[in-house]
Measured scan of single mutants.
Amino acid sequence: MTGIVKWFNADKGFGFITPDDGSKDVFVHFSAIQNDGYKSLDEGQKVSFTIESGAKGPAAGNVTSL
């Protein structure tokens, strides 16, 4: 699925993605970002991701920028 990064705190390594389908915002951890180098996201960035079952509920996985 796709969405827009609502916010991401690079110091803490997590944030939230707002899915394009209008569903509830999804937690994203830096370890789910699939790019080389520094793993961070920018507010407003368009991303593709999967929904994984995290310890505290749904979380984004396999996050790639579009």
Rank of each mutant, 00 (worst) to 15 (best):
31 S>P: 03
8 F>C: 02
55 A>E: 14
2 T>Y: 08
66 L>E: 08
25 D>M: 06
47 V>A: 02
45 Q>A: 11
4 I>D: 03
18 T>S: 12
7 W>E: 02
27 F>D: 00
59 A>Q: 15
3 G>A: 02
57 G>V: 05
24 K>C: 10
62 N>E: 08
66 L>Q: 10
10 A>T: 14
8 F>A: 02
41 L>P: 02
59 A>C: 13
36 D>W: 08
47 V>F: 01
38 Y>Q: 12
6 K>W: 04
16 F>R: 03
6 K>S: 06
20 D>P: 03
36 D>Q: 15
10 A>R: 15
29 H>I: 04
36 D>L: 11
51 I>T: 06
2 T>D: 04
6 K>I: 05
34 Q>Y: 08
61 G>S: 12
47 V>R: 00
8 F>Q: 01
7 W>V: 04
66 L>H: 10
43 E>G: 14
30 F>A: 10
1 M>C: 11
45 Q>N: 07
18 T>Y: 08
44 G>K: 06
10 A>D: 08
26 V>D: 00
52 E>I: 15
20 D>Y: 07
29 H>F: 08
9 N>T: 04
60 A>V: 04
36 D>T: 12
55 A>S: 12
32 A>L: 03
41 L>C: 03
52 E>K: 09
28 V>D: 00
57 G>S: 07
31 S>G: 06
26 V>G: 00
13 G>K: 05
44 G>L: 04
42 D>F: 15
27 F>Y: 10
15 G>M: 02
42 D>I: 15
66 L>V: 11
24 K>G: 11
33 I>E: 02
40 S>E: 07
51 I>Q: 05
3 G>F: 01
20 D>C: 13
35 N>R: 08
59 A>I: 15
42 D>L: 15
12 K>Y: 10
14 F>A: 02
3 G>L: 01
28 V>I: 07
11 D>P: 06
19 P>T: 05
65 S>H: 12
19 P>Q: 04
5 V>D: 01
40 S>M: 13
63 V>D: 01
56 K>M: 12
32 A>S: 13
56 K>T: 11
27 F>I: 03
26 V>I: 10
54 G>T: 14
60 A>I: 03
35 N>P: 07
66 L>N: 08
33 I>D: 02
11 D>A: 15
26 V>R: 02
66 L>M: 12
38 Y>E: 11
52 E>G: 07
6 K>M: 04
35 N>E: 11
55 A>R: 12
26 V>T: 03
31 S>T: 14
49 F>I: 02
46 K>S: 08
66 L>I: 12
62 N>Q: 11
44 G>H: 05
53 S>E: 15
44 G>N: 07
52 E>R: 11
24 K>V: 12
23 S>W: 05
34 Q>N: 14
14 F>K: 02
45 Q>V: 09
7 W>I: 04
35 N>G: 15
50 T>I: 14
9 N>D: 13
35 N>K: 15
35 N>H: 13
12 K>Q: 09
51 I>V: 12
10 A>Q: 15
21 D>R: 06
21 D>A: 05
24 K>M: 14
8 F>I: 03
64 T>A: 09
53 S>R: 08
48 S>T: 12
31 S>V: 04
38 Y>H: 13
6 K>E: 02
11 D>K: 14
23 S>R: 08
41 L>M: 05
38 Y>M: 10
49 F>C: 02
6 K>Y: 04
32 A>H: 07
37 G>Y: 10
18 T>M: 15
65 S>T: 13
44 G>M: 05
53 S>N: 14
6 K>F: 04
35 N>V: 14
36 D>A: 14
21 D>Y: 07
2 T>L: 09
56 K>H: 15
4 I>R: 09
2 T>K: 08
16 F>V: 06
49 F>T: 00
23 S>M: 07
34 Q>S: 11
62 N>S: 11
22 G>C: 08
15 G>I: 02
32 A>I: 04
28 V>W: 02
7 W>N: 03
25 D>L: 07
52 E>Y: 13
7 W>G: 02
34 Q>H: 10
29 H>A: 04
39 K>F: 09
56 K>S: 13
30 F>N: 06
1 M>Q: 11
53 S>G: 13
59 A>S: 13
2 T>V: 09
62 N>C: 11
65 S>C: 13
55 A>K: 12
43 E>R: 15
55 A>M: 13
11 D>N: 13
57 G>D: 04
1 M>D: 04
41 L>T: 02
10 A>N: 11
66 L>T: 09
47 V>T: 02
31 S>L: 09
52 E>C: 11
37 G>E: 09
7 W>H: 04
23 S>F: 06
36 D>Y: 11
53 S>P: 15
39 K>V: 06
27 F>Q: 02
33 I>H: 03
61 G>A: 14
5 V>Q: 00
49 F>R: 00
26 V>K: 03
50 T>A: 06
61 G>L: 14
38 Y>W: 14
43 E>I: 15
12 K>W: 12
13 G>F: 03
37 G>W: 08
16 F>G: 02
44 G>F: 05
24 K>H: 12
4 I>T: 15
12 K>A: 09
38 Y>V: 12
27 F>L: 04
28 V>Y: 04
22 G>H: 08
25 D>V: 05
3 G>P: 00
21 D>P: 03
20 D>V: 06
31 S>N: 08
51 I>L: 12
35 N>S: 14
24 K>S: 13
3 G>M: 01
9 N>A: 09
61 G>W: 11
21 D>L: 06
39 K>A: 08
32 A>C: 06
58 P>F: 11
62 N>D: 06
4 I>F: 11
57 G>Q: 06
64 T>P: 01
4 I>H: 09
16 F>H: 03
65 S>G: 11
6 K>T: 06
